[in-house]
Design a protein around this nucleic acid. Sequence first.
DNA 1: ACCTGATATCCGATC
DNA 2: GATATCAGGT
Length: 711
Amino acid sequence: MHLELEKHLNPSQREAVTAVSGPVLVIAGAGSGKTRTIVYRLAHMVGEGVDTESILLLTFTRKAAQEMLNRAGFILGQGLHGVVGGTFHSFAYGILRRYATALGYTDGFTIMDRGDAEDILKQVKESNELGKGDRAFPKKSTVMGFISKSRNKEIPIKHILEKESSHLLRYADALSELFDRYQAFKLKHGLMDYDDLLFNLEKLLLEHPDILDFLRLRYQHLMVDEYQDTNLVQGRLLKLLAGQAGNLMVVGDDAQSIYSFRGATVSNILRFREDYPNSRIIKLEQNYRSVQPILRLSNQILAGARDKYEKHLFSAREDGDTPELIRPLSDLSQARVVLDRIKELARDYPLHEIAVLFRSGFQSYPLEVALNREGLAYRKFGGLKFTEAAHIKDVLAHLRLVLKPTDLPAWQRAVSLIGGIGPKSSQNLYQELCGSGKSGALRHTCAKNPQLKSFLDLLSSLRQNSASPYAALQQVLEYYQPFFKEKYPDDYPRRQAGLDQLSQIAAGYENLDVFLSEMTLENPDQLGQNDPLQDYLVLSTVHSAKGLEWSAVLIIDLVEERFPSRHALVDADNMEEERRLFYVACTRAKDYLGLSVPESLYNRYQNRSEPAVPSPFVEEMPRHVVQERKEGFGEGLSQKAAPEPSPRKEQPDRREEQRGRPSQLGYCRHRIFGRGKVVSFIPPNKYQVNFPGFGLKVILGDYLQLENGSE
DNA sequence: ACCTGATATCCGATC
DNA sequence: GATATCAGGT
């Protein structure tokens, strides 16, 4: 089998492809042909006679793994069936499902998504009367955030609070008690959240050497993509699986680490050589993706980083346009300006080669409105997933109960649709279901409540004839219809589209278990529904854009508090991650890069626009790496390559003046945090203040009493 | 006892 | 737009 590696790969890539045995770390800069390298390595290994069943490919989505396998199969001229590919979480699920009993889950287990887990957390909180009646007690989603962060970073909750939410420190004991009880509750009811999948797999492998040996024997070749975004458990799991033979290749880029909030550490990359003593390290530094001016700008972002990255990315694409800086008057008119730009770009590129990127999901709303009005098709990635919508979860809950009658979150969700049944009755019925409550409650309620009866009938009918996921879903939908219209009287047509989409996805599955687990473990936005007839513009969060590329990329809302996110103003580490995030965003672009910096932001509460501070990442850029394009009536550039004083020049001065107003700095008082030192003024009306014992905070001026003359 | 509807507060990126 | 709690109805 001739793959013509010399023809398709540069020397470093070739080295990575042919280094099949032993541990290999590939440091792959953005756009350096990382995917191509993995694909060729897969093809090369199989071509050399490696058994496909002995290969495990871990990536950040199942779809990514699938595409790599397809490409490798195409190159090789034979399918790569047998290779197991997916995310850490889905791999863990597959193993745990087989060996659940070894961990004491006698009745199987349920994977909970974030919403399920939060609901359970709330129940545990209420039944233990933790924080009862305290309005200031952190919300379930906040608590869940702390719990997950604590587990992923493997540090106590208290440390998390100290570092980033010191105002909640008084709840430290209550929260850690809640955490313990939550853990116990899950164990008792056969529930696992996302984090449990990883920790329980580790537990399984440590407690059952026979299972570990079996897996080591089975998976002789491990490949891991996006290694910079793995956390500590994932690192340990790999080490366990790699074993002595250690045929492990990991690919990553420390400059693209953007998941520290879920415990990812670059230390996995930095420590690779120590973890695997006889390892090889290969660097891929030639960038094939972006034109030189885009790369120049991107390198400039890294140059401003606190941690220095040893990156010498160079482009094979010498010419190309300088990235554009767009300054709409507000975030609302930004939608129109960006839309106009997209329409221009659409003359040169198909829509799916154009992407708009943003820091947080909600930032695309104005643009989405404009796109809908214009009738321009788009697909959005990131932000709220459609599986998280209440009506989708309702329907899926019924299917989950088919597989596991004692699935607690699903039971509660399904049963509380029925009128007259709230949390308490639901719990009583559940207890009887599990055989531990007082018997008769079910029959008794059934007699009074015909809806409950038809619900139970639905379940038994679904369980008897093991229908396809699609057919089962249709049955559930028919049952759900009246509840649906009752629950969403005004917007059920819009939600109906989601249900239709769900049907379409379900049709692609034969096995209900696989369908349901992929719905929680994979992002269904990227699953199925590849409609080749429609061309879509792409809207995406930067996180969801990881690993992808487009000919033209526009990044919006590049202002303080949006990108960087206001949550990042807390400390320098967070700020560094925002910088890397911006780097990731810019390096997605092949030919065109547009940076949009609105001059004001609409404030919903005050019903007016307020001036915005340009993102520091844009402000610090040397003038020559971008060209300015002002919002105007006409088409085309108002300025080329900004040779002479541009309006930008005034920006830093104005900011300097505002920040430096001596009367504004000094000390201040806050009702809750007490006295603090004003670190900086953030126009128009916010202050960054350091409160002893509470740390750095950004607070609206209205809530502060300033003390004058102390500076 | 328990369910349902009304009202004030807050809002991050993912598997 | 969701979440949490309170008040009122069965």
